[in-house]
């Protein structure tokens, strides 16, 4: 591999941003947030940020109920992180398992699973989410469900494709001759060879998930208020995008930095681990 001086700095920067914007706040919001994110200082409504006429009391300003934007963003990181982790873990698990089965068993199982993938791709996920939200009301669980629904197919397709190739590999044939069970072959010989793909794919999904959460909030079916989820903060502040721009700008910035960093990191990982992966 050629030396890539500039590009190599990027993952470090990305990782730093991720830790500062997402991970530390998510873990330590209670300690570092200057205010209770739910506490409404009704006398301090719509205060601008420091340097824009505000005070050090509310560094990033306050929202329409006088809640501290900074504290809400810091606490919001918890939701961004937990939705990403839970949603992607589950989505990747479902997709990988079914992808392995489809690729390894082929035949009927493959046909059925791949049709189900087609169907999930063909169903407009946003509309499905809207329908489910009218059914059961918006909730954290619903957001997770939509995340799983949206991403599992990508894992299933990719894992199946690689499994199809791997099952014909010599070392798998040898293991089979040696009497290894299907389960053992999948676990010991095939899965380890596709872990890189899964990791890269999972990293690249974080951005998808964070943006999806925001989109659901825009449609009024995201994480229910008054939870300070980033997407909800942006969606809620969009009406006041001119006069009280800080309400949506700072959470939007948090989303931007997080998604950008995690995608750059994902791209870098892919170049390193799995350059053939044609994942979008």
């Amino acid at each position: 591999m050629r030396k890539r001086p500039f590009f190599d700095g990027l993952p470090v920067i990305s990782l730093t941003i991720l830790v500062v914007v997402l991970v530390i706040p998510a873990l330590f919001a209670d300690l570092i947030a200057p205010h209770d994110p739910y506490k409404a200082y009704l006398r301090n409504r719509l205060e601008p940020p420091l340097f824009f006429g505000g005070t050090t009391e509310f560094i990033l300003g306050t929202d329409r109920l006088g809640r501290d934007i900074l504290s809400r963003i810091l606490h919001g990181a918890k939701y961004a992180l937990s939705i990403s982790i839970v949603g992607i873990l589950l989505g990747a698990a479902v997709g990988t398992a079914l992808g392995l089965i489809a690729g390894y068993l082929r035949g009927m199982a493959d046909a059925v699973i791949m049709r189900v993938v087609d169907i999930t791709f063909a169903l407009p996920s946003i509309l499905l989410a809207l329908a489910l939200a009218t059914l059961s009301g918006p909730s954290f669980q619903l957001v997770i469900f939509v995340v799983i629904f949206v991403i599992w197919g990508y894992f299933a397709r990719q894992v199946r494709a690689e499994t199809l190739v791997l099952r014909e590999a010599d070392f798998v044939a040898r293991a089979r001759v040696a009497g290894a069970s299907d389960l053992r072959i999948l676990r010991k010989y095939i899965l380890p060879n596709i872990v890189n793909t899964i990791v890269v794919l999972a990293t690249l999904q974080v951005g998808v998930v964070v943006i999806l959460e925001a989109t659901l909030s825009f449609l009024g079916i995201g994480i229910p208020r008054p939870t300070p989820a980033w997407g909800l903060l942006v969606a809620d502040g969009r009406q006041l995008i001119v006069s009280s721009w800080w309400i949506s700008f700072f959470p939007g910035l948090a989303i931007l930095l997080t998604v950008l960093s995690v995608n750059l990191l994902g791209d870098w990982l892919r170049d390193r681990l799995d350059p053939k992966l044609r994942q979008v």
Binding site: L65, G137, G220, P224, R225, P226
Partner: peptide
């Protein structure tokens, strides 16, 4: 959200249903 703020201030337990 405002009702929740007022009620909780008084000591009520509340939840927002969307």
């Amino acid at each position: 959200e405002l009702m929740q703020v007022f009620l909780e201030e008084a000591g009520f337990q509340t939840e927002i249903v969307e």
